[in-house]
Design a protein around this nucleic acid. Structure first.
Lengths: 193, 193, 193, 193
DNA sequence: AATGAATGAGGATTCATTCAT
DNA sequence: GATGAATGAATCCTCATTCAT
């Protein structure tokens, strides 16, 4: 029962399925067949739409990053002051949607993918740069010229906590994670007073 | 001409070769043959000594972690005060030996391995716990009861910087990395004054 | 905007595209999609018109053979004596249209197709028979009863030169090829004097 | 039951099996699995020894050509005069070993392979050159300076007859084929008297 | 008339692993 | 101790072909 205009639907289904499979497997050793099956289609169709497994991965990454960026944007829209905006960004990072074992595994594997795929590397760098810009912009009113360095430290803490959760000693704890970064932010601000 | 007592030599050669291959490849998709070849033996022999590919990986991880721990121990031995010891740990983390693109890639992939291998996960957790203990122990004189939380933040920054280097925007910069963590440490200490 | 009476146009486009693709590829490993694309339509339509890939090939062969036959017929029409007609046939075989690397590759692959397809084999045999008849008919006045054997030799030389050109040591040289067969023909004629 | 020194045995088995499969199929659409099965091993082993399907084909070609060259050499060794040597070469070409439907199909497909594989093309050209040299060398005493051209014609007839047999109108007839080329040779010789 | 959608089947290639020597 | 031999299983990808629209 083929229908017209299926392409975007199929692509989205594949991208979602890929994220889920990677999250579940914990690595990139997921087969196109597994992905296609979860997305409800044949692996041939998956290849038809993406050309190769790597492109499926890249598209999945791009989608994840776009969703991520949107969440941060939304969070920022509801904040008025620099400090509120900083809090908004940090909270968005540990939003329950993202901060789940599966999502963390997916992110981790994007970094692995970036080791071999230039496209993946570029995507991840863009994301990093954008986050950093955001942090710098909002920290400048708070810490002045120290903003760039301070922003890097905040970004590093966020990533470090993510990485730590990848080990899953206990279930990801959004509240605790957020609190830690808030505290680091406080330290940065206090120090310039 | 097989010799007696080759086992430890072979094992070490394989472990070293594995780290090198993973570092070079950027992921765990390295074949036993590649590893064995680099280690100067047949893949059959590699299996003979380790039983399976996963065990080769695990042994490589263990070795890397042991070396790492030794470096920190050595660094600590030459430091006398808490602050010096903190600095020593941090510097050890970004020692030029470890802080190279290839080593970083290897570490990254240990995290991936930990997603599927319980042994790997256990090893990585032990390392984390030990680092954390070390940090807490040495920070207590500096920040009192805030030591546990502060130690987590410092550990997170260290990992976050590592992860960031995995993207390799520019060559890993030990000095800059060290400076960033030192600064974070300063902030923690200042805040209790 | 589908139109009426498109069938012959589409079929011809496909047949032409097929010959071109085979010529370019040098073998029969051309996909229906490639052919259809070159012919400016979807592969589904190609199947609609021909039913199967093999039939597309067969039709291409038939077309090539028909064109070939027409060229010989035209050449013969302008010749008056047996010897002129022989020359006309031979020249037609090495006409620049046919005697190009791509065309030669196409012919070569027709022989391959004939190994598995009875229809292809039949077509090729008909072509052979017709050429042989033509040669015999025109050689009889020249060599008498030796015409059948002599015709076979001439036909063999023609095919052999074609085959040799398939190796493409140098660009096909119509003039040289023609001269060689003319010479063989001379020998046949001389020998009965 | 693996044994040592199997490589040459396996390689030869594969080469033989490949020729047989191509001969039987009539084209190059034979799978590595088919070949390996006929050669009594797994397809993985075939890849282990040859690296790729193309290399299996190339090796098969090389082997066929070597055998061919040996047959001609042997035939020449027993001939004393130029005319005897020419006859020996021609007869060797249509020796019952070579002049079978399957072998002819194999040859035909070597030409197809040469359209895409430079290695194959090189092999075939060497064979052609060598045959031509042989013919020229032995024809010079018979036809003088006309030897090069005459040799080309003889070579073309041989190839042409081969190609004609590929159509298999009737079973390959060594005697008739030989007779035809002998006759062509006679004509060349007569013409210089 | 025409095509996008869809897939089953197949094929080259890779690889961890085992085993006889 | 050491390795060449060997393979089963898996995976990516391709493609002819069909079908609903």
């Amino acid at each position: 029962m083929p229908k017209l205009g299926m392409e975007p639907i199929r692509r989205k289904a594949l991208v979602t399925a890929t994220a889920a499979e990677i999250g579940q497997a914990g690595n990139l050793d997921v087969t196109v067949s597994q992905i296609a099956k979860r997305a409800g289609m044949s692996s041939a169709l998956a290849h038809h739409y993406f050309g190769s497994k790597e492109q499926i991965f890249i598209a999945t990454m791009r989608h994840t990053l776009v969703v991520y960026a949107a969440e941060i944007r939304d969070a920022l829209a509801m904040a008025d002051t620099p400090i509120e905006r900083m809090h908004a960004i940090i909270q968005a990072c540990f939003e329950s949607t993202n901060f789940r074992t599966e999502t963390i595994a997916t992110w981790l594997n994007f970094y692995v993918l970036a080791q071999t795929s230039d496209q993946a590397k570029r995507l991840l760098r863009i994301y990093h740069k954008r986050l950093h810009s955001n942090l710098v912009f909002n920290m400048r009113p708070l810490v002045g010229d120290r903003a760039p360095d301070a922003a890097s430290r905040i970004a590093a803490i966020i990533d470090g906590i993510y990485l730590h959760e990848a080990l899953g000693a206990q279930l990801p704890n959004s509240k605790a994670a957020t609190a830690q970064v808030f505290r680091a932010l406080d330290l940065e601000i206090e120090s310039v007073k």
